[in-house]
Nucleic acid binder design. Structure first.
Lengths: 139, 139
DNA sequence: GTATATTAATTGAGGTATCAATTATTGATG
DNA sequence: CATCAATAATTGATACCTCAATTAATATAC
């Protein structure tokens, strides 16, 4: 095995190991799972959106979307209602409570990310984001 | 929100999204989960190792190690036996079948990784690995 | 030497993700 | 307009991970 191959193999385990650590830690620090917060943030931007579009933007399986939204609804964070013009679709939007609570989550998230990226220069952050996007495109 | 903050926030979702996609794809391409292959590769290097050490090297929860090894044992890939000098410890090593089958997995893994890292120069791969390690240390 | 603390492994509970199959509704075709 | 195809959401099955609690064996301390 060449040195390059060694380095490449490391990346896979680093990536997976990192995510396995980050996800639970994120939830403990912020009080919400990262996916669920991503959903809420998308609802912030769009005010009203159906689950399919949500799924595309968050880039997650439809089954997961359904379950997250059910839970968010049960928690009083979002409201769901059918599109009267197309009864297949379900629209989702933030509840008043959701709007209120999301700001706290967002600031916790920023603190968390800055901790993860401590020591990274702005340029390094940019390069890292670029690398990750390129890997995403390779899938 | 500044541009830097935007870029930082992206990294978290990219990281998690990437791993969520990679893990199932890895298993479909190679025929084994990445964690389970990591365990087998460690056993390749050490020939005999107890579960605690395995856990430290793979950097995964002990509960997960136990379950993976039970399954690998049921699949005939590894053999487990207690340390006679300390009955708390369980040693693990590859079975003959494990030794035979691992080479195929390893070459599938290399193909998979090269696909994920298509278009990455050697230098970029090195920098990426370094970034991921730095993030790991920040946790 | 007996009580207490530590260590290794396991089990149980809870959460998230994927894939595949199903239901319900709408669109398209002949 | 009736059948067949496509789309949206849901449910069921399976797998992985973490954390917390438990069991069993060994070390340590008094």
């Amino acid at each position: 095995m060449t040195y390059k191959e060694f380095e490449e193999e490391q990346i896979l385990s680093l990536l997976i190991g990192l995510t396995n650590k980050i996800s639970p830690k994120f939830e403990r620090c912020t009080g919400i799972s990262s996916t669920r917060l991503a959903i809420l943030q998308m609802l912030c931007e769009r005010s009203e959106i159906n689950q399919s579009q949500l799924q595309k933007h968050i880039d997650i399986d439809g089954a997961a979307i359904t379950r997250h939204l059910k839970q968010l609804e049960a928690d009083g964070m979002v409201i769901r209602y059918k599109n009267p013009n197309d009864n297949r679709e379900t629209f989702v939007r933030l509840s008043d409570e959701g709007i209120e609570r999301i700001e706290g989550y967002k600031s916790e998230k920023r603190i968390f990310i800055q901790q993860i990226l401590a020591g990274f220069s702005e340029e390094e952050t940019r390069v890292l984001a670029d690398f990750l996007k390129r890997m995403q495109n390779n899938i």
